[in-house]
Design a protein around this nucleic acid. Structure first.
Lengths: 126, 126
DNA sequence: CAAATAGTTTACGTTAACGTAAAGGTAAGG
DNA sequence: CCTTACCTTTACGTTAACGTAAACTATTTG
């Protein structure tokens, strides 16, 4: 039954407390309260982790909300499920595009680097 | 000697002309002019393509500017080259992190999907 | 030749994702 | 008891990346 304070999470994931509270404001997190103080569960921590992963991938917070909600239970409605499968497919398409972009960029970076090093060799010891 | 109008590029890459002009405003593109009208070269088109790839990867336009400038010539200064190699390494680190994130997300999506389909089978024909 | 189409500049508006400041409550330690 | 270190809410400010509208020019086409 792990519990976390807002500053603990803030340090662990290197974001400000303001950011974490912001995610709560827009309904991405709903930590428990001890009195007035926020108390984050392990599940809350995972959600935050997922949000930040989404951010690294360039997703909007709304996109992240959609993705995160995919993991939630209570999706018993059949239509909902079908919509979910579509959403998953859409995400997959986008991610594959990103994979493509990244491999290309890495290729470019390698090229740029060897160019640099080459230029350093011939040009370096002036 | 390929040439493109702003609306051609706009259609090809599915962005507004406003967006393309915006990239010029902040110095990411500098197309030639025929009279008052912008005329984009093949090189301009490539730059735009790189900018948009950066966007898909969640880079800011400033980040993209840095990356794109790596491909440019005139980087004869040794210190510049060393800084460039560092920048390339930093980019590589970030991209590898993204690769990691994406494979994890794809894993999660697969899981979510099989869960969905499973739920549809047992639950579907009400 | 009038209307549609594509181009231009200028400039204010908008949204997301927080930053930052103000003002205050609570609990531990010297 | 007072400072230090947390926590809180409220609320206005900021930045990036365009959107949107106005007002105008140039070219093509029925």
């Amino acid at each position: 039954m792990a519990e976390y304070s807002i500053s603990q999470l803030s340090k662990e994931f290197d974001v400000t407390t303001r950011t974490i509270r912001h995610y709560e404001e827009i309904g991405l997190l709903s930590p428990a309260r001890r009195g007035q103080t926020r108390v984050y569960s392990a599940a809350d921590r995972i959600r935050l982790k997922l949000i930040l992963r989404g951010k690294r991938l360039g997703l909007s917070l709304d996109d992240s909300r959609d993705i995160i909600d995919m993991y939630e239970p209570g999706k018993t409605n059949v239509d909902q499920l079908k919509k979910l499968i579509d959403a998953i497919q859409a995400q997959r398409t986008k991610l594959n595009q990103q994979l493509d972009d990244i491999t290309n960029l890495l290729k470019d970076l390698n090229q740029a680097e060897t160019d640099c090093i080459e230029s350093l060799k011939t040009n370096g010891q002036k």
